[in-house]
Design a protein around this nucleic acid. Structure first.
Length: 282
DNA sequence: CGCCAGGCTTCTA
DNA sequence: TAGAAGCATGGC
């Protein structure tokens, strides 16, 4: 079971029809990724996986512009987690009444499968920062140090970043987070911290590995694992989720939903940030 | 101007 | 081990 149907080329584009549990705007504007912008009319342009990509949602159809079906299957299917059956995920989460409300508010939310290194860095940058400024920092980082591609720049590699100094990074305006990024880059580029095993390592070991980086605490490690390594059990607790846990889950989240609690967290995050009454009504 | 932002490290008791 | 201070930057 997957969340898309027919994939077919139309002119230079690829149409993905029969898409379910998918609202492009909610997915790209919910604080999980920082390199997409709305173009209007249901279209978004972003840089990911080595490409500058434009996507448009028209009802249950996605249009991947200037993309052939092979590339959709190779890159974007996985990025948008379209092989996951969110109907099943939501059915499990909805056994909990709080989740049922959050899901009703954004039924098309999904958690992207982003490249690990970029996700890790993005959430190191996110510490005590706001989403608008995170986006600006990431764009400057890519523009200054990422490899140029048609229409933009990719996220810089660990090797490139490991070769930088704090002075080099000054124009990025990272603040005190600059040295955190350099620490991460040097550990990863030097082979002291291996990212690949974090896809499958027992969670507690994966968390400890990431926290070897200066600048990676409990929350950032959880973000990296959820957004960068597809670890759906991981629940990043920022100030919003902390508030939600306090008022909506005084006894903690139900253990029955633990296997997809991180996905539930994404519905909840969007819900409490965008629905006025979310934290007031029970 | 003060407050806050998808927190973290470091210092102190 | 727990709690508070300090931290760069920029929008409101």
């Amino acid at each position: 079971m997957m969340d898309y149907g027919t994939v077919r080329p139309v002119g230079e584009d690829t149409l993905v029809e029969g898409v379910r549990n998918f609202t492009l705007g909610d997915i790209l504007d919910c604080g999980q990724c920082f390199r997409w912008e709305a173009l209007g009319g249901g279209s978004y342009r972003g840089t990911a996986l080595g490409k500058v990509q434009t996507v448009t949602q028209q009802g249950d159809t996605l249009v991947f512009h200037h993309t052939d079906p092979e590339e959709f299957h190779r890159l974007w299917k996985n990025y948008f987690d379209l092989d996951r059956d969110y109907g099943g995920v939501k059915a499990l989460l909805e056994s909990d009444p709080v989740m049922a409300k959050a899901i009703a508010f954004t039924p098309g939310m999904r958690v992207l499968r982003q490249p690990p290194w970029e996700a890790l860095c993005s959430f190191i940058i996110s510490a005590n920062n706001n989403i608008l400024r995170i986006k600006g920092i990431v764009e400057r980082l890519c523009g200054l140090f990422g490899e140029a591609i048609p229409g933009g720049w990719v996220f810089p590699t660990p090797e490139r970043m490991a070769a930088l100094t704090l002075e080099d990074l000054a124009p990025v305006r990272l603040g005190y987070r600059a040295r955190y990024l350099l620490d991460a880059a040097r550990l990863v580029a030097g082979g002291e911290l291996l990212l690949e095993p974090l896809y499958t390592l027992p969670l507690d070991e994966a968390r400890l590995e990431l926290r070897r980086i200066c600048g990676v605490g409990v929350k950032v490690a959880e973000c990296a694992l959820l957004y960068g390594f597809g670890r759906a059990e991981c629940v990043p607790v920022d100030v919003w989720i902390a508030r939600a846990l306090e008022t909506l889950y005084p006894g903690g989240m139900p253990p029955e939903i633990a296997s997809v609690a991180g996905l539930g967290q994404q519905y909840l995050f969007h819900y409490v940030r965008n629905c006025e009454s979310a934290l007031q009504t029970v």
